[in-house]
Amino acid sequence: MPPRIQIISILICIFLLAYVFELVRRRYLNEEYSVTWLVTGVMMLVLSISDELLQYISNLVGATLYTSTLFFFGMLFLVVICLHFSIRISALTNQVRTLTQDIGILYQERESLRKEIAKSKNESETSGVENL
């Protein structure tokens, strides 16, 4: 692999890893979501540093250019990350839906309870007047 692209790739990977760590440290990113990014960063870093591994994998997948192997795996990791997010979004959508329904039902119950309390207060007041 040409040394220039290798250096750029390594720098990008190190930057990505450092940035993800910093985001987690500042609590902008949950640990849960940082894992896929960290794995991706480390994998890409290993591929960028180790010429032998990159050669071996390029031969394995039949890539003629080492850089395309790098791009290929970069893309692959992104696809996995996107899929992971779609799964998370689906779960969140379902949770939000249930919460929305529960909120609607709870509001309704609160209103009907309020009405009943007002009614019983009225009744106890009027019965109190009658007793007098």
Partner: peptide, 16 residues
Amino acid sequence: VITLPYNNGYGVALQT
């Protein structure tokens, strides 16, 4: 009346 805080679509409303 049950009021949902935003529009959810027919199925979600019905399921509520």
